[in-house]
């Protein structure tokens, strides 16, 4: 499988990365190079093989359903590029 320019732009949009026309062109070549490389997986017989979900056979650990953390609003917004009274500020999203 290979990708065309329109697909590259669509994927960039899905990934929320702005790309220029030239970048999209360059990426198309690179992505097709990588997709060509991974293409060899299609020759492996995977009939009846379970997909790996956990590399170590283990039960996921569960903890008691209790509040163990919190009251750290100042810490949480400390690194925000734009915040006001413990809120993150973003461009207007609701008209």
């Amino acid at each position: 499988m290979s990708v065309d320019l329109a697909t590259v732009k669509r994927v960039a949009r899905l990934a929320r990365i702005a790309v220029s026309e030239e970048e999209a062109e360059r990426m198309m070549g690179e992505l097709n190079g990588i997709l060509g490389f991974v293409e060899q997986l299609s020759e492996v017989n995977v009939d009846g093989v379970e997909p790996m979900t956990s590399v170590t056979p283990m039960e996921m650990k569960k903890r008691t359903d209790a509040v163990t953390d919190g009251s750290k609003a100042d810490d949480i917004v400390a690194n925000a590029p734009n915040s006001d009274r413990n809120f993150f500020l973003v461009p207007k999203v609701v008209e």
């Binding site: 991974v38 997986l41 995977v46 997909p51 790996m52 979900t53």
Partner: peptide, 14 residues
């Protein structure tokens, strides 16, 4: 075609 197949191949590698 990609992700699921790769995870199956991963099972075979292991």
């Amino acid at each position: 075609a990609y992700y699921l197949r790769a995870q199956k191949v991963r099972t075979l590698i292991k």
